[in-house]
Design a binder for these strands. Sequence first.
DNA 1: AAATATTAAGTGACCAGTCATCTTGTTTTT
DNA 2: AAAAACAAGATGACTGGTCACTTAATATTT
Lengths: 209, 209
Amino acid sequence: MLAKADDWSYIYTMSKRELKRDHLLDAGLKVMATRGYNGTSIQDIVNAANVPKGSFYTYFKSKEDFAIEALEKVTEERMIQNRHLLSDRSICPQERLTRFFVDNIGGCEENLNGGCFLGNMCQEMSESSEAIRIKVRQMLRNSTQSIEDVLEEARLKDGLKSQLPSPILAEFLFNAWEGTLMRMKASKCREPLNAFLTVLPELFAKPQA
Amino acid sequence: MLAKADDWSYIYTMSKRELKRDHLLDAGLKVMATRGYNGTSIQDIVNAANVPKGSFYTYFKSKEDFAIEALEKVTEERMIQNRHLLSDRSICPQERLTRFFVDNIGGCEENLNGGCFLGNMCQEMSESSEAIRIKVRQMLRNSTQSIEDVLEEARLKDGLKSQLPSPILAEFLFNAWEGTLMRMKASKCREPLNAFLTVLPELFAKPQA
DNA sequence: AAATATTAAGTGACCAGTCATCTTGTTTTT
DNA sequence: AAAAACAAGATGACTGGTCACTTAATATTT
């Protein structure tokens, strides 16, 4: 699955059906990310995608199924987007990590209404849908692993100020990041982001100067 | 308002009406905290409180109004709970801060389904209800301020490892904490909490030993 | 024309919020 | 102090509307 993720050529081999499905996923995701799961109706989704209502159920077996697929799609896309960055050894790990976060504020940047779809679903749906909870947990784990890898590399290369194990630091950092995105949703300002980006370098070794 | 917060005697002067209202708030809050705003119906709330449906609207003018009052109540109660702790100078600031966090996992501890009502409302409702968003932002600010106070005190007393301004650190820390609570909701395990509590001491000065 | 994909029009359940009616408690009148 | 008048609170049935999901008729493909 991940092995193929960089290969965009499959786009051209997608059938009309797959394209439409993909479109539904994209458009619906956008709505659900801002209005939440329960705040988004099937009607909202098909409206956003300009697709007749009845079509929805030929592509997804339920609203829950849609959400799970959307969850998968959004994190997979983000992963692809970030794979190059995170493994680009021409940039130092610290810089890579910083960019990783900043690049992923997504919609948040434009109108400060972003937040994180994963976070949203986690908070709203973890208790109601076990299937969604499991999927969210998996996606969260994947992202944490990416951070851990960079952290480990940084430690080996330039050293880290903290002696704590990378899995702990990665878990902490990623959760801190999710909290930051959440806070931005309520405060609609850049302060939470600033705080995060200001504290982040504290993890890394001080310059020898 | 805060000046009176420690005075529990008003409980005995509460009218039947106020008591019932309070009960509705407590019971409904519990439901809404786990199932979310849109996932909780008025019927769910009155069922939880064992109160007939019709009564709801003699106490609250709308569901939104209920949520805002619940938000206020839950954070005010937490504030009262924590005021003694946070201002108890017989405990060192670092220990106070740690306890502040640990004491507030709330329901999370028992069945790992807790999360944070504030966080929940923030993620789910910030885009749909400006009134709720503003209230959440205010409550979030209050909590951040509490942390900032302890941090500033710690800095003056024992010093802080980080030279960054306390408001920045407090903002970062509190958001990290909210993210941690969120993550626990999805993962239903103690790992996020452990990561947070392990990294937290890194903020403080190393022992001179 | 048979098979398959698409879709508009439902369907019953449930939603937030209202309302007419009933109960309870207090005040005023006698 | 008893009776009558009034007020405030309590209550479940009800309303218009929306929900996720189904289905039967239509369009498209083979």
